[in-house]
Structures are given as structure tokens and as C-alpha cells.
Amino acid sequence: MTQALGRHAELSPIPKRGRLAALWRQIKINKANYLLLAPFATVFFVFTVLPVIMSIFLSFTHYNMLQPPVWVGWANYIRLFLADDVFLIALKNTFVFASITGPVSYFACLIFAWMINELKPKLRAFLTLLFYAPSISGNLFLIWTIIFSGDSYGLANGFLMRFGITTEPIQWLQDPRYMMGVIILIVLWLSLGTSFLVFIAGLQGIDKSLFEAGAIDGVKNRWQELWFITLPSMRPQLMFGAVISITQSFSVAGVTIALAGFPSTDYAARTVVTHLIDYGSVRFEMGYASAIATVLFFAMVLAQRVVQYLLRKMG
């Protein structure tokens, strides 16, 4: 309920029917707003919210996609935490992965967007394209499988062997010791995407007179300008970027499957989402896969709340 309405109700304790009437009045006043929202809301509910609700329902069932779902209560969740060792590996990998790539990619997006914004238009346009190109390039990231190929045809191995650093090719994508590091590197290479563009757009929207006013008020260099003027002016974009970083870093799967194989050696590159794909699309245990998705969802919401709290505190 709205703040305005809440305050009104506080001032004069009106009976329930009165409150409903007030609510109805509010709705009628805002008719135009509901109309503007209606097209998006309809499509959004049918194709996004409804499937999510159905999935959460399925997470309490046993469902193999052939027979109708059978209600099993909390069984999927109990099995997930008590009887599935691989899930715990996946959970650990995902947390390690997200806690590195999430913050690093977030700050990389921000810092590069800001640095590029300092340049002259021509150079800025070129570098924006260059930094963004990997994330627009679709399957072109598979080039890394050639670079980090485990035989001597791989570029990285060829390079190391030519200079005598190693004599034998390193199994970059099969050896659990290197796997995660290589994948993190590649994900970071791919990470200057949505948030990066949004930060660039956000930087364009800042009122230029603020910088002049800041200079008069004693801002001495660009770093102070960044901290005292630029960042506070783009708080909504910073919040957006944080949410995107969280969702992306928690749901990494495509890159690990393409590079480390599926399943990967010793499950070293198993993440929550690859675990989910395994149960959903390979073993057809949709109920169990939905339970994994629901757990992941709450983990992301928790992370988002923490980051939101930190960002608010900073500002």
C-alpha cells in the first residue's frame, strides 16, 4: 500500500469499508498509470512470473515430465542438503566463483566505463566497442578452447613450450588445479557487458554543471570528482549493475560446460546451475531441478540484500 494512503489511514481511523473505498479512489485517480503499466505487466506475469510460481510448486514434487507431478513435500530439499555430495561441491564452487567474479567484474565495468569516458569521442567509441565486443560475440568465446587446449596445438601451451617454461603441455581445462582459474579469467573477459553499457549511459546523463560547481567548491582532481560527484550522481545505475553482477556470477554455467566439459573432472567446475541443468535436462528430474533453482534464488536474494545494504551505507 502507498505511503500517502498509509498516512491517511493513520490520521483518521476509518472502518474497513472506508479503507477499501479510499483504495478504490486511489486506483481510480491512478487509472492512467495502470494503463501504462498494463501491457508490460500482462506479458511479464504470463511469461515470467507464472513459470516461476509453477517451478516453485514443482520443487515440492517428484516430476519426470512424463507422468503428472507427485507431491513429496520437502523431500527434494532434504535430499539436496543431506544426500547430494555433488550439490555441496557445486555450492562451494559457485560461492568461490561468485565472490571473485562478481565484485571484480562489477568494479571492472565501473572503472573502465569511467576511464573510457575521460577520452576523446573517437577513441572512446573505439574502446567501448573493443571492451564490449567479447560479450556481444556469441560463441566466439570458444576461441579460448583453442588458446587453452590441453595438447601442444593450444596457443598457451605452444607459447610456454617454445620458451622452455614447460616441456609438457598443461591440461588447462582437465586438471582441477587450473580449471577454475582459467574459467574465471574467461568469464572476466566476457563480463564487460550489460553493466558496462549501463554505466556508460549513466555517465552521459550526469549534469555537466555539477562538475563546474564541484570545482568551485574545492574538488581538486579527477579522483575526488569521481568519488564526490560522479558516483553519487549515478546511484540508480550502480544498483542496477550490482543486481546484474550478482545474477550473472551466481548463474554461470554456459562457459564452464563449453570449456571444462560436462561433467568436469572431479566436478571441479561444477556450479549450481550446471548441477541444475544435469538434473533438469539430462536426468529429467524436474522437481529436483526446481528445488535447486529455488535454493539458488534465495542465495541470490540474500546476496542482493547484503550488497544493497552496503551500497546504501556507502552513499
Partner: peptide
């Protein structure tokens, strides 16, 4: 604008970003 349901709606949009799309394929 602030109107009945507006806060709730934007909250739902935010939350919907965090649900793995792989499992919503069947629904």
C-alpha cells in the same frame, strides 16, 4: 508515481531477475 501496488510490482521485477531460467523452460 506511487500508487497501490507500485512498490510491490517493482520488487517482483527485481526478484524475477534472480530465478534461473533453465527450470522455467518446462512451465
Amino acid at each position: 508515481h506511487i500508487f497501490p501496488g507500485s512498490k510491490l510490482f517493482s520488487e517482483i521485477v527485481l526478484l524475477s531477475l534472480m530465478f534461473a531460467y533453465q527450470v522455467t523452460a518446462v512451465p
